[in-house]
Write a protein that binds this DNA or RNA. Sequence first.
DNA 1: ACAGCTCGGGTAATCGATTACACGCGACCA
DNA 2: TGGTCGCGTGTAATCGATTACCCGAGCTGT
Lengths: 399, 399
Amino acid sequence: MANIKDVAERAGVSVATVSRVLNGHSPVAATRDRVLAAVAELGYRPNSVARALRTARTGALGLLIGDLTNPFFTELADAVEDEARSLGYSLVIGNAGESPQQQDDHIRTLIDRRIDGLLVSSAGTGSPVLRETAAAGTPLVLLDRAVDGLDVPCVRADGRAALADLAAHFAALGRRRPAIIVAPAGTRTGADRLRFFREALRPYGIELPDERVGATPDLQPTGGRRVMRGFLDLPEPPDAVLATDNLMALGAMDEIRARGLRVPDDLALVVYDDVPWFRHTDPPLTAIAQPTRELGRAAVHTLLERIEGRPAESVLLPARLVPRRSCGEPVPEHAPHTPEPADEARAPVREHAPHAPVPTDAPRTTDGSNGSDTDTNTNTNTNSDTESDTDTHNERGSA
Amino acid sequence: MANIKDVAERAGVSVATVSRVLNGHSPVAATRDRVLAAVAELGYRPNSVARALRTARTGALGLLIGDLTNPFFTELADAVEDEARSLGYSLVIGNAGESPQQQDDHIRTLIDRRIDGLLVSSAGTGSPVLRETAAAGTPLVLLDRAVDGLDVPCVRADGRAALADLAAHFAALGRRRPAIIVAPAGTRTGADRLRFFREALRPYGIELPDERVGATPDLQPTGGRRVMRGFLDLPEPPDAVLATDNLMALGAMDEIRARGLRVPDDLALVVYDDVPWFRHTDPPLTAIAQPTRELGRAAVHTLLERIEGRPAESVLLPARLVPRRSCGEPVPEHAPHTPEPADEARAPVREHAPHAPVPTDAPRTTDGSNGSDTDTNTNTNTNSDTESDTDTHNERGSA
DNA sequence: ACAGCTCGGGTAATCGATTACACGCGACCA
DNA sequence: TGGTCGCGTGTAATCGATTACCCGAGCTGT
């Protein structure tokens, strides 16, 4: 493979000149053409490894996600990649497989490869390696999953309003024995979702006792199934279940199906994360949709702020309830999707619970851990149209 | 961040010694301990950029996939990553978004970063960049999607037997007006699936006329929906549709649903690629499952052969039909999944069509492009158990 | 006791780029 | 006409590792 020296010789100049031409540090026309000709003839491409060594910049960002086979993360990664590419960075995706140890391996590898910054959707509770990385000054931004006691900006969705809507939904449909399947104990995300759900139910006089709170060990279908089994074996089984992750919901559905039960007749089911298949399940699933692509975009911007040395704040974007038929009537799923694009975008979205005194008002700052960690929406992108993202399936040009 | 010089000073030795100790080129105990102590105290980690520059090896493999939001690719990537990691390589995933141009961008970036080898699931027809890469001698292996006229090993699934089973299935159920939704014209995968399906139907006297062959422009749900609309607007609409990709199937289901039609009553639907949600759709979908994880593993091994300079052969692993209820009776979906793990593994799998003279016999080599491109299964891994992979959902330890 | 061999470890070249510094040449001004 | 300024370009240091080569000390054999 040709290197800069070959180009220099061929063009009859020094390597310095070649470098300068290629980096636009020398806008001279004379030698410039000779150099460019030589580059073209040799098919020369600069060696990014050498460049990175010299400049101490790789032009790559790292993204650690919990699970590559989880459609939520996959969409997140897709959005992050798009944004990173459009800003001239390439993205290295690391898959933790929900294992903190594997996550640590990846963090180390990425740091060793001198990525310019790191986005982490942390598996488990934050590991020591993660804390060291933050302490070492590596530009770091948390994505989707906050980590207690880690003073680093975090970009994630705020589910409070959506959970309030859900509580209203349950109340309106007479579901009074809800249950929740949450992420492993100790994770901030699981704890938050549980707490907000409980708080949202209270105004309706609906209880969420501990026996109807099931933590999975693994954030996988198996775990969801196991928890659902426990619920169904209860003397008084729940009449509505919220699975706080789509994979756990999958396992829960397996168990429901295996017992010959029907949704929503025997049990209502609601899922966190909205994936395209939920419209086609039996029945179509009511879901809490996170603004996945916006989260990805915001995370990249936040990380770039850090990389460029500016202070960056946390970002919190609202999630929303997408009612379908898995909680029972009345949600008639209005004559399904006739227009081609952007059909789902018109799904009923309520910004505040319609008929109830929901506690979404004043004291927004509920956690004391991170000072800047409130409603601050630092979303900087100027895209005013929110449509095409919450849309049916993310479409891609080429047609 | 500490470098090798700092370590050398602290240990009172030269950088050469440090390097030797760290690379095991010097099994001496005396200085060794001092060096290791210094490494530990400083928290030193070798700079892989510098190392890569010197050794001309990065220890990274590249994987280009068609679409990150496609669960088939996602599972493939997951498998490739697992295998690469277990062999000491890290993986850089590039998402082409089914755009050949974006794919070319990625290829170039990866080559510039001097990855040790490249796995490509090519979007569109093979691009010039891809051909140049192969010609330049970069270790290259194609994955899932073959590219005509590119003399490079390819690891993919053989759908012939599964399609033969499907033809038998259709014949047995009296479906005599099949249709097929295929990938964009020009792609080898689309052409193959179409041809094999047609050939498989012939023995039953079932025709597959061109009007019931729909190519999507984009391999996305939108395209699938558009094609399905065309089919349903036909004077004689099909009574069975095979979507050769899960995303296109999703779009097809959108259209079916929008028209208020029912599967399988009004139309049978079969999907290429088996994703976990297909068991929960309405109705559960009959699918053609590819041995995704095995493909990923085999691809990594094949690539390593190339990297180490050995010749490598193409790999062809059989796909299989997983009958569910989307073609009508009789496939009663035997009392769904009672045992917890590995339930789907027991689904009826027929290696050869049960009751018909299917043309799967002698002339296996149907394409003349690549000499070594036959049934050769070069799968080298010694894992004898095939179980846990074709299983319900891929489970991951941690519990 | 001395030649020769082994072996640990230091010196310095090297990978392929970027970039500070210096130099030469032409132009401009006094 | 001579000095200075500026511009374009070359020389060489540098990034952080690996590794060929060489040197010196200690051990062995005769």
